[in-house]
Design a protein around this nucleic acid. Structure first.
Length: 683
DNA sequence: CTAGGGTTAG
């Protein structure tokens, strides 16, 4: 073996195991040996630096090369892609196009993967056409890349077409197609193809099972999932060694809401990689387990494994749900610094985070900076406007999206309908609902009907709303009846409320929420006897209302409060300031505590009057004590819906103090300004 | 000396 061959092999190993220091040493040696201009050595150097995430060095070597072949170009493209910088990969592909060098099969598969990463079908289609023209379309690897590219761009029909007409297939072709169906949420097609591939004599591997298990989870086919798991064990599949398999199982258990099982499996994975970490972090995030998610993220960072857009968007999701704006901003500022940071999912998660933290202007800014907005980007912004009560803006965006040739999907319709109902835009809501019903590619779900029930209910058309529920082609959910029930409460229609309440208790008699709603309706109507009966029924069943919890971020510290909470060190001053404010509000606006809303929450009934302060009020009280008013808008967050009494109090407070208060509850944002609320007192 | 399938966001 010559010295040159030895050094090339050494560099190959450095690439494979990401050994940067060893690679740097070898780089020096090659120069000393007079191989600084050697094509193969330089290609290996580009690859090594690329795999070690030193794209600065990789492009330095590349730029200084006296001659470059197709491998030089492809290697550098792959380096950028590895780092998540798919745009750089494609721009290199274009630059290469204007040079002498012609692309080969490796070049095409790399650039197709980059297109899939970005998710824009137009780019991918152009490259597909180039593959046809240059005769690479039926190269097996290239064809597989095309299948995957289309499915990543949401063009599952194109993937299928490619798969059906390709002359030869291998395991990866089948796996790509199965994964395509799985990700397109066409679980039955995915399982069907799984069967077909075995009939063709193809042996599934861990990638196959990963998709198939996910489809089982998607169908809620827990039994089948368990069966596959069991058959894997009896077949001696080395599950716990195979990270991929273990990650798939972790995911399956998470989807089936078996978090503890998932955790057990995760802990036993020997070689955890970024994908297994993402799976478990996303699992805890989606279950709303804030502390565990943050702890896991910290542990993950300690491993030194490179972050990517996937794990960052998962993290952002949980921070958004808890409205932890300071931590969200921290991750955002990290994202803008790294090239992979703002790929489309991550960028969308940033917009959503700002929306959920009440910073609409920031959200708009980030939304406008996204160059290639997809349907999720638009939907986040539309539903964001909806949550904040900006119905007209939501509608404007919904129309604009379609002008940009992005077709709304079921979630987009949900966003615009709920924006209409929140803003009381009855006519517009009706219009969009009928467009939705005419759209052949979308089947309206219960949630869409629930928006319409809310819309009709707001207008006081309770009978129409009930007819809609009873005549819709779907099984009514608990939630849709609850929507109708709260409309009955707002319109003080006791008889109708009683009727709906009975249906609800028959349907979902173990849910404390229903009892609380009914008892509130009776209490507001002054029917204390009935009210008492409902509460006793609830008590007999041993049901407890979910504890109300609010929190506020003051100087980057999050303070949590429960209803009647007296554990905060400043609690006495909080009560004091609240009392002063109540007096001022009464004097200046005539509002009196508890007169308009004589609601008695079941949980709090037995407590002393002085402790019957809701968590959202305590949180606002803390802001007042802290002089939080100097910083403009005061934002408070609550896990349940804000109560009517607190709502009146915040209105008064905004008038008396001439300040804006924002309360985000489980459903929407309430922006209190000059004695009014953005929700128009309907929520 | 270069490439393809498993994770994320509404």
């Amino acid at each position: 073996m010559t010295e040159r061959q030895r050094l090339a092999k050494l560099l190959r190993d450095c690439s494979k195991y990401s050994l940067l220091n060893r690679g740097l040493q070898t780089h020096v040696t090659t120069v000393k040996m007079g191989l600084g201009l050697d094509l193969i050595i330089n290609n290996s150097l580009v690859d090594m630096y690329g795999k070690c995430n030193r794209l600065d060095m990789a492009s330095l070597v590349f730029d200084k090369m006296p001659e470059r072949n197709v491998i030089s170009w492809t290697t550098l493209m792959g380096g950028y892609l590895c780092q998540g910088n798919a745009k750089a990969t494609l721009s290199l592909f274009c630059q290469m196009g204007s040079s002498e060098v012609k692309p080969n099969d490796f070049t095409f598969s790399t650039s197709l993967k980059a297109c899939g990463f970005i998710g824009i079908a137009e780019n991918g289609m152009q490259i597909h056409v180039l593959c046809i023209k240059t005769g690479f379309e039926w190269n097996l690897v290239v064809a597989n890349s095309i299948i995957d590219m289309y499915s990543k761009c949401g063009k599952i029909v194109e993937s299928t077409r490619m798969f059906d007409i390709m002359p030869t297939r291998n395991l990866i072709s089948w796996n790509s197609m199965i994964a395509g169906y799985t990700n397109a949420r066409q679980s039955s097609k995915s399982l069907h193809l799984f069967k077909r591939m075995q009939e063709h004599g193809e042996i599934p591997d861990e990638f196959t099972y990963s998709s198939v298990l996910k489809s089982c989870a998607g169908l809620g086919a827990v039994q089948e999932g368990r069966q596959i798991h069991a058959s894997l064990i009896t077949r001696g599949f080395p599950i716990l060694i195979q990270t991929i398999m273990a990650s798939a199982l972790v995911e399956l258990y998470i989807k089936c809401r078996w978090l503890p099982e998932a955790r057990k499996l995760f802990d036993r994975i020997e070689d955890k990689n970024v994908i297994s970490w993402t799976a478990i972090i996303a699992g805890y995030a989606q279950e709303g387990k804030l502390q565990e998610t943050i702890d896991l993220f910290r542990q993950f960072r300690k491993t030194g494994i490179q972050l990517d857009g996937f794990v960052l968007s998962s993290m952002m999701g949980v921070l958004a749900d808890f409205a932890l704006v300071e931590q969200g901003k921290q991750i955002h500022s990290y994202m803008v610094k790294v090239p992979y940071g703002l790929d489309i999912s991550a960028a969308n998660s940033v917009v959503d985070m700002y929306i959920k933290c009440g910073l609409t202007v920031e959200a708009e800014k980030c939304f406008n900076e996204i160059l290639a907005r997809n349907v999720v980007s638009w939907t986040v912004m539309i539903s964001g406007y909806g949550k904040h009560g900006y119905g007209k803006d939501a509608i404007r965006l919904f129309e604009e999206m379609q002008l940009e040739n992005i077709k709304p999907d079921e979630v987009s319709y949900l966003a615009v309908l709920s924006a209409c109902s929140h803003a009381g835009l009855i006519e517009e809501g009706n219009k969009y609902f009928s467009t939705l019903c005419k759209d052949q590619s979308i089947t309206p779900k219960v949630e869409h009907y629930a928006c319409m029930v809310d819309l009709l209910g707001r207008a006081g058309h309770l009978k129409e709303a009930k007819d809609l529920i009873e005549n819709m082609p779907l099984e009514p959910s608990v939630g849709i009846w609850q929507t109708l029930l709260s409309a009955c409460r707002v319109h003080r229609d006791l008889e109708f409320g009683r009727e709906v309440g009975e249906i609800l208790l028959r349907l979902d008699g173990d849910n404390p929420v229903n009892y609380v709603m009914m008892s509130n309706i009776y209490a507001e109507a002054g029917e204390w006897g009935e009210c008492q009966k409902v509460r006793e029924a609830m008590k007999e069943k041993g049901l407890k209302k979910e504890a109300g919890c609010s929190w506020i971020d003051i100087d980057k510290e999050v303070h949590f409060f429960y209803g009647g909470d007296d554990t905060h060190p400043l609690i006495e001053r909080i009560h004091e300031v609240l009392k002063v404010m109540e007096r001022r509000i009464k004097e200046e606006t005539g509002y009196a505590h508890g007169v308009k809303f004589a609601l008695h929450d079941v949980e709090e009934e037995s407590k002393e009057e002085s402790l019957r302060v809701h968590s959202e009020k305590l949180a606002i009280g803390l802001a007042l004590v802290h002089g939080g008013l100097d910083r403009g808008v005061v934002s408070v967050f609550k896990n349940l819906r804000v109560c009517g009494d607190c709502h009146e109090f915040f209105k008064g407070l905004s008038k008396v103090l001439k300040r804006v208060f924002v309360v985000r509850d489980a459903n929407r944002f309430h922006r209190f300004e000059d004695g009014e609320c953005s929700c128009g007192d309907y929520w």
